[in-house]
């Protein structure tokens, strides 16, 4: 079984989160989100509202944020929908955290292109720092998750930490990013390869060379 599970409902959880309500700023945002949907379809706002709630929980706990049961029930009340339907959505999408996470949620992509480009080394580097898949380190700084493809294959391997993607990683570059985060700095997102700006080819073009100057129709050559 997967390690994904819902944080058990407990009196402590209720005491901590039972009074969850939007902050003034988020209340306005939530209202705007709900108003995007036509009359009678307000329930469609469940996904953005869950995300907003997760971010608010994150702001309150100084972490990436997660969705305690009372918060899920709060969203159900906001949208006047059965709470089990909200829970279905929250458990379906892996970007909703169902258990508390650390300050930084390190999501290492382990799908084929990243794996071929060395994601195993990245995971080993995480392990070296005491991170364990599905767990938060004791200092509350890191939570490690292995995730499926994040769509950055051409700058593999990649890691998503909270909202930022860090690409073209090697163990050294990855360590530098983590150290910077641990110091409270904000490392540059995107590719970590100094020779690259985005995902343009590294060095000389190796494929589609004809396309460099002008549009070229390759179809006749296949």
């Amino acid at each position: 079984m997967a390690e994904r599970h819902i944080e058990a409902d407990s009196p402590e959880l209720r005491a901590r989160w039972g009074n969850f309500a939007w902050t003034a700023e988020n209340a306005a945002k939530a209202k705007e989100v709900v108003s995007r949907y036509p009359e009678g379809r307000q329930r469609s706002a469940v996904m953005p509202l869950l995300d907003l709630a997760q971010r608010q929980v994150g702001a309150e706990t100084q972490t990436q944020g997660w969705l305690p049961i009372p918060v899920i029930e709060f969203i159900a009340r906001e949208l006047d929908m059965p709470v089990v339907r909200v829970l279905e959505v929250a458990t379906f999408y892996t970007m909703y955290n169902l258990v508390p996470v650390g300050r930084y949620h390190v999501q290492v992509c382990g799908t084929t292109p990243c794996m071929l480009r060395g994601s195993d080394d990245i995971l080993a580097a995480c392990k070296k720092r005491g991170m364990k898949k599905g767990h938060t380190t004791e200092d509350g700084l890191w939570t490690l998750t292995e995730v499926e493809c994040m769509g950055n294959c051409s700058s593999a391997p990649m890691v998503q930490i909270n909202d930022g993607n860090y690409e073209d990683l090697t163990v050294e570059r990855f360590d530098a990013v983590l150290d910077a985060l641990a110091r409270g700095e904000t490392p540059q997102e995107g590719t970590q390869d100094p020779a690259r700006h985005t995902v343009e080819p590294v060095g000389a073009l190796s494929t589609l060379t004809e396309m460099a100057k002008s549009n070229h129709d390759y179809r006749s050559e296949w």
């Binding site: 819902i6 339907r85 829970l87 379906f92």
Partner: peptide, 16 residues
Amino acid sequence: DEIGALYRGEDMQITT
């Protein structure tokens, strides 16, 4: 509405 299908794929579980 009291029964739902939680999680996804192979991990899908039916529960109240």
